[in-house]
Design a binder for these strands. Structure first.
Length: 544
RNA sequence: GCGCCCGUAGCUCAACUGGAUAGAGCAACUGCCUUCUAAGCAGUAGGUUACAGGUUCAAGUCCUGUCGGGCGUACCA
C-alpha cells in the first residue's frame, strides 16, 4: 500500500510540473489518531519551502491531480497544516484479509534481508558457571533478533563464542580441585578469588563418584578444569534449550591461536605501523582513531588481552563470508567495539558488515527490592532457578518487553502472578480464547462455500483487520532496529483490538454467513498471534 | 576529568527515527459474570516529556549548556 501511494503521489507531482529532482522522499505514515485516516503523507509540507507556497495549497493541487483506485482508497482528505490523509476502501481490506488467511503461518515474513547471510553471536559466556539472570537478557535478545532476521528473509547462524584458556578458567579448575580434596576429607582452601558457588561442590562430588580418590595426586588443576568445563557447558546447553535456544556453532577462542590468526593479526598491525612494543607489552595505537590512550594487545606476560582475539575473531567471521555479523553484548563492553571495528578495518575487511546490539543491565527485583548479584560470590540467581519460579514463557517475555537500550527491571513477584499483573498471559489468553470459540463453531456448524468477508462491517471488525495488516510492518521495524519489544507492543495492541471485537460482536449463534466470516476473522487473529509469539519464542496455547 | 547510555503519569515503560490532542500496564476510584474463557471489558483520575536556550511549517524525538542516574575509562573478561 505504501508503495502504491508513493507511486500515485509521485505521478501527481509530476503532473503538477514538479521536476523529478525536486520531489522529496515521499513519507507515508500511519496517523496516531484513526480519525485522521489510515495512511498520511507530509509531502505538501516538505514541498512548501522549495515551491515557496502554502502547504495547504500544494496539498489541494496535489489531491486534484491524484488518481486513486477506488478499490484501494475510499477517501482523500487534507487536514491540519497540510497533511494528506488516505482512507482504505473496505474492498481492499477484505482482499488483504483473504490473502492473510491463505498465507497463515507465513504471514508477516518479509524480504528486507533476503539473501543476507547473517551470523548472530550471543550468550558467549565463558564456562565458569551456570547462566545467570544477567546472561538471560543477552540470550533471549540474541535469539529473538536472530528470529527477526529470519522472518525478514535472512539465513541466520547462531554462534556461541567462548574462551577456556584464561586465568578465570584456571581459577575455576583450582576451585574444583579444592572442593574435591575437601570431599575426601583433606584440608584444602579455595584459591584467591575462587568460585564459591554450590555447583562447584556438585562437580567435585560427581568426580568422587566417578573416580573415587584416584585423582588425589593430580599435580595441577588441568584435569579438574576440563571436567568442570564439560559439566558446566552441559548445563548451559540444557538451560538454553529450555529457553528455546539452540546454537548452531560453538567457537573456541583457542582456534585463533592454533590457526595462527592471532600472530598474523599482530604482524599486519605492525606492518601498518599500528602496533608497537613498550614496557614488554605490545600496544595497539588506538590514539590514531581518536582514543586518549593506546591499548594493550599483548601483556608483558606474553598473554594477549581479550581485544586481540576479539579482532581476529571478527576477521574470522568475515572470512567465513557473512554479510552481517551481529554481536550482542552488555553496556559494559561497549568500549571495545570501536577498537574491534578499527582493527578489522586495518586488516582490510568491510567493517560496515559488523553490527552490534548493546543492551543495558538487568536489575532483579525481589520482594520489591533490587537484588545485587555477583557470579563469583555465589549470590546470583541462575536462569534455571528463575524459570523454575516463573516459567519459560514468562522469562523470555520479560527479557524482551523493554527496549534493549533501557535498564530492565525484572520484578519476580509480578512475573509470578498468574493473572492480571502479568502481561504475557494477556496475549496467550487471547489466542486460547479464539481456539475455544473455533472449537465451538466447529461443533455446531459446517460451511461449504467460501466465506463472504464483506459482511465484516462493524467498527471493531474493521479496526481489527487493519491492525492485522500492519503486522509485517511491525516485524520489519523490529528487525531493522533490532528491537524485539516492538513486536510485543504490536501484539498487545492486536490482542486488545481482538478483545474489543470479542465484546462487541458474537460469533457463535449469529447468522451462518456472519458466523463464518467472523470465524475466519478470528482464525486470522490467531494466526498473527501465533506468528508474533513464535518470533518471541513463546508458546501460543490452545487452552488455558 | 573524559566517553557511551538514560531522565516521559505515583511505579515499570511505549511513542512507527521530526508530525496532528504524548499512550499502555501496575497501583487508586466507579461500574460489568443466566449470553463464544471475568487470566476479561467499560469508565474516572493522573503530565510544563528533568531544567534553560537553539534549529523549523512542526521537537519527547535533532543541536548546545546545566542538573540527576547507570556503565565504562586496567598489562581483568
Amino acid at each position: 500500500m505504501d508503495q502504491y501511494l508513493q507511486n500515485i503521489i509521485r505521478k501527481a507531482l509530476i503532473e503538477m510540473g514538479v521536476s523529478e529532482e525536486a520531489i522529496p522522499e515521499i513519507q507515508i505514515e500511519t496517523p496516531r489518531d484513526p480519525s485522521h485516516g489510515d495512511s498520511a503523507t507530509n509531502v505538501a509540507m516538505a514541498l512548501a519551502k522549495p515551491l515557496r507556497n502554502n502547504p495547504r495549497k500544494i496539498a489541494e493541487e496535489l489531491v486534484k491531480n491524484l488518481k486513486t483506485d477506488p478499490d484501494k482508497i475510499s477517501s482523500v482528505e487534507i487536514a491540519g497544516p497540510g497533511f494528506i490523509n488516505f482512507r482504505y476502501s473496505d474492498n481492499y481490506l477484505y482482499a488483504e484479509l483473504k490473502q492473510l488467511l491463505e498465507m497463515g503461518n507465513e504471514f508477516g515474513k518479509g524480504s528486507d534481508n533476503r539473501g543476507v547471510n547473517a551470523l548472530v553471536e550471543f550468550v558467549s559466556a565463558n564456562p565458569t558457571g551456570p547462566l545467570t539472570v544477567g546472561h538471560g537478557r543477552n540470550a533471549v535478545l540474541g535469539d529473538t533478533v536472530a528470529r527477526l532476521l529470519e522472518w525478514t528473509g535472512a539465513e541466520v547462524q547462531r554462534e556461541y563464542y567462548f574462551n577456556n584458556a584464561g586465568r578465570q578458567m584456571r581459577v575455576l579448575g583450582q576451585s574444583v580441585q579444592a572442593r574435591y580434596l575437601q570431599q575426601l576429607g583433606k584440608k584444602a582452601d579455595l584459591p584467591e578469588g575462587g568460585y564459591e558457588g554450590e555447583y562447584i561442590v556438585d562437580i567435585a562430588k560427581s568426580l568422587v563418584e566417578e573416580h573415587g580418590d584416584s585423582l588425589l595426586n593430580e599435580a595441577d588443576e588441568k584435569l579438574f578444569k576440563e571436567k568442570a568445563e564439560a559439566a558446566i557447558f552441559d548445563e548451559i546447553k540444557k538451560t538454553l534449550e529450555r529457553m528455546n535456544i539452540v546454537m548452531d556453532s560453538f567457537f573456541n577462542e583457542n582456534t585463533l591461536y592454533e590457526d595462527g590468526s592471532i600472530d598474523q593479526t599482530i604482524e599486519k598491525f605492525r606492518k601498518k605501523g599500528l602496533a608497537y612494543d613498550k614496557d614488554g607489552a605490545v600496544w595497539f595505537k588506538t590514539t590514531e582513531f581518536g582514543k586518549d590512550k593506546d591499548t594493550v594487545l599483548i601483556k608483558s606476560t606474553g598473554e594477549p588481552t581479550y581485544r586481540l582475539p576479539d579482532i581476529a575473531y571478527h576477521a574470522n567471521k568475515l572470512e567465513r563470508g557473512f554479510d552481517l555479523c551481529l554481536d550482542v553484548f552488555g553496556a559494559d563492553h561497549i568500549d571495545t567495539y570501536p577498537d574491534v571495528l578499527n582493527g578489522i578495518d586495518v586488516l582490510g575487511y568491510d567493517k560496515s558488515k559488523v553490527d552490534v546490539l548493546v543492551y543495558q543491565f538487568v536489575t532483579l527485583v525481589k520482594d520489591g527490592k533490587p537484588y545485587k548479584m555477583s557470579t563469583r560470590k555465589a549470590n546470583f540467581v541462575t536462569l534455571d532457578e528463575l524459570m523454575d519460579e516463573v516459567g519459560e514463557d514468562v522469562t523470555r517475555f520479560f527479557f524482551l518487553m523493554r527496549s534493549p537500550n533501557t535498564h530492565l527491571e525484572f520484578d519476580v513477584a509480578q512475573a509470578k502472578e498468574a493473572g492480571e499483573k502479568n502481561p504475557v498471559f494477556y496475549l496467550q489468553y487471547a489466542h486460547a480464547r479464539i481456539q475455544s470459540i473455533l472449537r465451538k463453531v466447529d461443533e455446531i456448524a459446517e460451511f461449504s462455500d467460501m466465506a463472504d468477508l464483506s459482511v465484516l462491517t462493524h467498527d471493531s471488525e474493521i479496526t481489527l483487520i487493519k491492525k492485522m495488516l500492519s503486522f509485517p510492518d511491525a516485524v520489519s521495524l523490529a528487525a531493522s532496529h533490532r528491537e524485539p519489544h516492538r513486536v510485543i507492543t504490536y501484539l498487545n495492541e492486536l490482542a486488545s483490538n481482538f478483545t474489543t471485537f470479542y465484546h462487541d460482536c458474537r460469533i457463535v449463534g449469529e447468522d451462518k454467513a456472519i458466523m463464518q466470516a467472523r470465524s475466519e476473522l478470528a482464525k486470522a487473529v490467531a494466526a498473527v498471534l501465533r506468528n508474533g509469539l513464535g518470533i518471541l519464542g513463546i508458546t501460543a496455547p490452545d487452552r488455558m
